[in-house]
Design a protein around this nucleic acid. Structure first.
Lengths: 221, 221
DNA sequence: GTCTATACTCTGATAGAC
DNA sequence: GTCTATCAGAGTATAGAC
């Protein structure tokens, strides 16, 4: 029953798009993309399957459009976080919290983006690779800055650091509950301070002083 | 056509169980549980849907049995890793690599266990909580040891450390490819040495010396 | 743009012969 | 234990009136 909200004919981006993608992503997050039926999506949008089909010819087209918007959302959130300070250390802290907040709390779309990648077939998936890499580049630049400014050790593989770090953030969305013992920002700051201060209890440590050192063959890890 | 391999009537744990769960988990990993049909599973097991139904009355029963075995597998792998040394630092290193290896390389079941949790309905899920917590306890003990022995700072929240750390490991299974630039053990050692040596570039650092310190209200993170 | 009605396929599960 | 045969329901997508 939702009326089309375009005015004066300039219906380039109907407000319905956001509405539909929002309701759909909520279902996809709760039930998974495969288990959710187009009928359910239509119902959640207060329309009938036939009407939804007018906007999206296939179920997958809906998912693709959803993911496109999701990447825009999370990219914007991190960009804003970076813009909040000129100190790269603080930029990192703000970005960690922004990524977490968008993924866990603010946007079901971003959650779906990360967890329903498998449901994208070959063609649709390829089209999402570029935007995805673009987002990764935001983080690559952030880390690169920290290395250049001497905050982070320069003998660490920055790609591994980025990928593994983002993975740690992503997984949090699988267990975090709003009513838990920690706020989301506490968790983000935990990770950040953990990164900044390290884990071990030796204030005068060297680089890798553990008693039984791992096989020393690797050099650029 | 796979013959039943029980001998002398003691068919408590037919070898077919492993065979079926193995083939099924491979499909579930590649396509997801929901997208995979019982027909496909039967085919992969070289039998017909009717025969598979003799072993598992429902599709979900198959998933539950699969997950039970998966928890046993990953628990055993970490237990063995812990048994490989009496040094808790080395135990940590071995456990990280064991978790990674089982999840990424050795067992599709473990992957399914971690990524198809959503497909478990209320009742089946509850039954899996106890074994899952049991596995978490292995890691809790490991970390607890490291704190007691003074290796890890004692002002860190051990639960958060464990959950976030395991999450970082889990996510690796979403992107790691065998033919990548790093072996799995290199990645595991990267994480371990990262944990042991810290990230920042200040050899004489204090606990949390970053310029712009995060809001200092939290105390037990 | 939204509705009604439906085509066509696939799915999980069952029944019963062998 | 495995097979053949099949059911009842659900799924996506379509056609065409309004």
């Amino acid at each position: 029953m939702k009326k089309h909200t375009s005015k004066k004919g300039e219906a380039k981006e109907p407000a319905d798009r956001l509405f539909i993608l929002d309701r759909a992503s909520k279902l996809f997050r709760e039930q998974g993309f495969e288990r959710t039926t187009v009928k359910q999506v239509a119902e959640a949008c207060e329309m009938l399957p036939g009407s939804l089909h007018y906007r999206y010819n296939t179920k997958e087209a809906l998912l693709v459009d959803l993911m496109k918007l999701a990447i825009e959302q999370i990219s914007q959130a991190v960009l804003e976080a970076c813009a909040s300070s000129i100190d790269p250390t603080e930029q990192l802290r703000a970005s960690i919290n922004a990524h977490l907040r968008v993924l866990v709390t603010d946007s079901d779309m971003v959650y779906v983006l990360l967890f329903e990648w498998r449901s994208l077939k070959g063609d649709a998936r390829k089209k999402m690779l570029a935007p995805r890499d673009q987002y990764e580049q935001l983080w690559a630049g952030l880390i690169s800055n920290l290395v250049e400014q001497g905050v982070i050790r320069d003998d660490l593989n920055e790609d591994l650091l980025r990928i593994i770090g983002l993975g740690a953030l992503n997984w949090i969305s699988t267990w975090y509950k709003e009513d838990g013992t920690h706020t989301l920002e506490e968790i983000g700051d935990f990770i950040w301070s953990f990164l900044m201060a390290g884990l071990v209890n030796s204030p005068t440590q060297e680089k890798a002083p553990a008693k039984k050192k791992a096989p020393a063959k690797k050099k650029n890890l």
